[in-house]
Structures are given as structure tokens and as C-alpha cells.
């Protein structure tokens, strides 16, 4: 190691040219994704987590799954890879599909059976919703409802 500063490692014109082009293309893609695009364009998708506005006098919905088990208990299905094989956000992303066709819930039970062979199995799966009603930006009260259910085969 010498203490004298070494000359800079430079790039050739071509190396600069493609880097400049790549950067311009990347910026164009992410700006386009944000201006006009949607989630489908990941990784160049809009930065839209929490971009929605919650009405201070509206509702806050939280969806989750419950299940009757062959051990005779009713449990909240853990929303992770070890429970439903999907998180709550994934459940909510697929909610309309599941409500229209509750038979899809069979998959949840099958996945649980495969992932947790040692635990009690699901006999009936329910899609539940907790709706918190807001007033002037503060919590007022909460209502719990069942949106769909499926008797596991």
C-alpha cells in the first residue's frame, strides 16, 4: 500500500454511454410506473403503500379467517406461511374472488393440513370482517361480520 493517491479508475465512453442509457431507462420506467402504471409493473410499480386516504368519518375494515377444527375448537387462522399459507394482505387482495367462490377456501384447509400435519385440521373455514366505525378521525365502535364460509371436504 502506498500513501500516494492512485489515479482514478475511469470508464470508457462506451461504458459511460450504456450506464447513462440504463439510468435514463430506469428513471423513465419508475416515473412512468408512478404516473400512469399500476402494481402489475413491479418493480417499477407506483409507491402506493398507504397512499389511500381513510375518511375520518368512514370505516376501517380488517379481514381474517377463522376455522372450526376437528379438535372441536374455533380458532383464528394464523395469517402466515404456517397457517393459511398467505398473509392478511394476500387474503384481502383475493377477497372478492373468495367471496364469489368460497370453494377456494378448501385450498386453505388443504395447505394447513400439509404444512401442519401434527395440529388439529380445519373442518369449516370462515371469512370474517371487523369493521371499526370512525367519527371525526377517532374510533367510535366496532362491528364483526361473517362474509363467507366453506365446509371443508
Amino acid at each position: 500500500m502506498t500513501s500516494a493517491p492512485a489515479p482514478a479508475r475511469s470508464l470508457s465512453a462506451f461504458q459511460r454511454w450504456w450506464r447513462g442509457l440504463a439510468a435514463a431507462l430506469g428513471i423513465a420506467l419508475i416515473v412512468h410506473g408512478s404516473l400512469l402504471g399500476n402494481d402489475d409493473q413491479f418493480p417499477f410499480a407506483p409507491m402506493s403503500m398507504f397512499a389511500f386516504r381513510t375518511d375520518p368519518n368512514g370505516n376501517i375494515d380488517a379481514h381474517y379467517l377463522e376455522a372450526d377444527t376437528d379438535a372441536g375448537t374455533r380458532i383464528k387462522v394464523p395469517m402466515s406461511r404456517n397457517g393459511a399459507g398467505m398473509g392478511r394482505a394476500e387474503l384481502e387482495g383475493q377477497l372478492l374472488k373468495i367471496i364469489a367462490d368460497p370453494a377456494l377456501l378448501q385450498n386453505i384447509a388443504d395447505t394447513q393440513r400439509r404444512l401442519q400435519p401434527g395440529l388439529p385440521h380445519y373442518t369449516h373455514v370462515y371469512v370474517m370482517r371487523d369493521r371499526t366505525v370512525l367519527r371525526d378521525g377517532a374510533k367510535d365502535h366496532t362491528v364483526t361480520e361473517q362474509l363467507a364460509d366453506w365446509a371443508v371436504r
Binding site: S80, G85, M86, E90, L104, N107, D110, T111, R114
Partner: peptide, 14 residues
């Protein structure tokens, strides 16, 4: 875990 789900749940991005 999601990779273990049946294919119907997969919604591939562009």
C-alpha cells in the same frame, strides 16, 4: 408458504 399454495392463487406480475 405462498409457493406451496395451489396455482389458482398466483397472479404473476408483468
Amino acid at each position: 408458504g405462498t409457493a406451496a399454495l395451489p396455482g389458482e392463487f398466483y397472479q404473476p406480475t408483468m
